[in-house]
Structures are given as structure tokens and as C-alpha cells.
Simulated assay, not measured.
Amino acid sequence: MTGEYAGEVAEDDYGPTITRRRLGRIMRQLRERTGLSLGEAARAIEYTTASLSRLENGQQGLNIHVAKSMLDVYNEVNRYEEILDLCRRSHRKGWWQAYGIHGRGYITLESDAESARTFEPLLAPGLLQTAGYARAIFEAQGEVRPERIENGVRVRMIRQERLRDARRPLSLEAVVHETALRCRVGGVEVMYGQLAHLAELAELPTVSLQIVPIEAGAHVSMAGGFVILRFPRRVLPDTLYVEHAFGGSDTEKKHEVDRAKLKFDRLRGMALDEASSIAFLQRLAEDLQ
């Protein structure tokens, strides 16, 4: 896998999430430049302090009218049109919304990332799943509406296309525990296809895949998996995403992201190297025949 694979990304290519977060950071910088506290600025624009805090953190959108009021309060003239344009673009819909996925979850972050490092203890990584494997996962979760299941499967397949995208590739480093590969999700046929698919994708220049064998014993992330995302030209700080049974959460806090990076490096150190991992996948697939 190449280390710096991602190419240049035009600002217009950024999705609504990264645009909203960039906008929030800019507005915070403008406020701080004027010397106004969060509470003082909120009163000046007739906003609540909590709402202004969410806006600056990229958790809440900013409409044109409020943006103009803020720019007046902050005495900003030179970046007026730039900021209003960011404001408009932050309200664009993401491609995933056409498939019934809303909110500001993991997909909105991954769509703007240039690289992802992920540890999966119980599942094949979403970016490396086959349609059959993904479908079996959704069905096991009790989702009974077929259209919802098929939309979820389609979204995973679209996400996977970026691994082969020459213009905006996503670089993926994945560490997967052997336990995830032993669980026969969807039955023997589906699992055989999934193992073969992992071995195939591991040959891509954008993908690094390593397996932690069961024999390695206890490891530093027994409680679950995680993903570390990096963004183009560092317009956002590295972000840690942790999924759980009822959703997920993300953080940009440096000390938490750094802890995750250290854990990931330790997991890689325990894992088989890339060539041995591909051979291991091939042996597992042969055992299913």
C-alpha cells in the first residue's frame, strides 16, 4: 500500500460535513479575533450560547441570515463572500441521503476522508464487505423492510468504490481479528465469497490488510473496534470514530485520537504481515470448500 496515495481535492468536492466543520472553525476564529467571549457573541447576534457553541463545533448548520449578522458583529469584510458560499455549500445533501441515510454519522465523515485506519474484532470491515455478507449482517440486526436492507447494502458497495477511484481514492489500513473470519456470516457460501473478496482487495495499492491470529492472545482493544480518519490537506484534525450496538460517536480530541493511534500500532505489531495475512485468508477459504 502506498503511504500518501490521495491526490488533490478541490474545495467544491468536500461534502456537507467537512464544509460545516470548516465553517464553524472559521467563525470561532473570527469571534476570538474580535476578543468576544462565546456568551458575548451569542447575545450580540441574539443566539443562545449553546447554539453558538454547537455551530462553532460543526454540530449545527449556519443559515445565511445568521451568518450575515455574525460577520457584521465580527467586523469581517474581506472573507464575506467566501464565508457565505461555505454557508450555502454546508447545506447541500450528501449522496447517501438518496438511500434513506440521514444525520451526521460515520458515512458523512468517511466520504470526505483521504485515509482510514480500522480495527475490527468481530466483523469484516464495512469497506471490504461483499454484498452477500453485508446483507446477512443487516438481516441479523432485525431490519425487516427489504428496501432498507438493500439500500444499506448499496451504500456499502458505493463506499467501497473509493478504494479503486483514481481521482479521489480512499487509503485503507485494516487490522482484523481472526475471530471475525471464523464467524460464518450468511453461511458457508457467503463466507467463502467474503474471504476471497478480502484477499482480492488486499492486493489493491490503496489497501493494507493484516490479520491478528487467535493464538496472539489478549490485545489492547478487547472491548471493541474503532476507526481513525484523516482528511485532505488536514482541513480537519484526525478523527476517531467508535461504533457500538446502539450507534456510534466521534471525537477530534487529540489525546483520545493519539491513544487510538498507539493502540492501532500495537495491534499491527501483533498481526501477521500483509503477505502472510493474504495466505491466511486463502487457507481459511480452502477450509470451507
Rank of each mutant, 00 (worst) to 15 (best):
G7C: 12
G7N: 13
V9S: 10
V9I: 15
E11G: 14
D12K: 13
R22V: 14
G24I: 11
M27Q: 11
L30I: 07
L30C: 09
L30K: 01
R31C: 11
R31H: 12
T34Y: 07
G35P: 01
L36E: 01
S37K: 09
S37W: 07
A42G: 11
R43L: 15
A44F: 04
I45K: 04
L52Q: 08
G58N: 09
Q59K: 14
Q59M: 12
Q60S: 15
H65K: 13
S69P: 08
L71D: 12
V73Y: 03
N75S: 14
V77P: 03
N78H: 13
N78P: 09
E82K: 10
I83S: 06
R88D: 14
G94Q: 07
A98K: 14
G100S: 12
G100A: 13
I101A: 12
H102V: 13
G105N: 06
G105L: 03
E110G: 09
S115Q: 09
A116S: 11
R117L: 10
R117N: 08
R117C: 05
T118C: 06
Y133P: 01
R135V: 02
A136G: 05
I137F: 00
F138R: 00
A140W: 07
E150D: 04
R162D: 04
L163M: 12
R164I: 08
L172H: 06
V175L: 03
V176Y: 01
R184G: 05
G186T: 04
Y192S: 08
A199I: 06
L201N: 02
A202R: 00
E203M: 11
E203D: 14
S208I: 10
L209H: 00
V220Y: 02
V220W: 00
A223N: 08
F226H: 07
V227G: 00
I228R: 05
L229S: 10
R230E: 10
R230M: 07
R230W: 04
V235C: 10
H244F: 05
A245L: 14
F246A: 13
G248T: 10
G248Q: 09
E252R: 13
K254E: 15
E256W: 03
A260I: 05
K263E: 04
R268M: 01
L272S: 03
D273M: 10
E274W: 02
A275T: 15
A275D: 14
S276C: 08
L284F: 02
E286C: 07
D287P: 04
D287T: 09
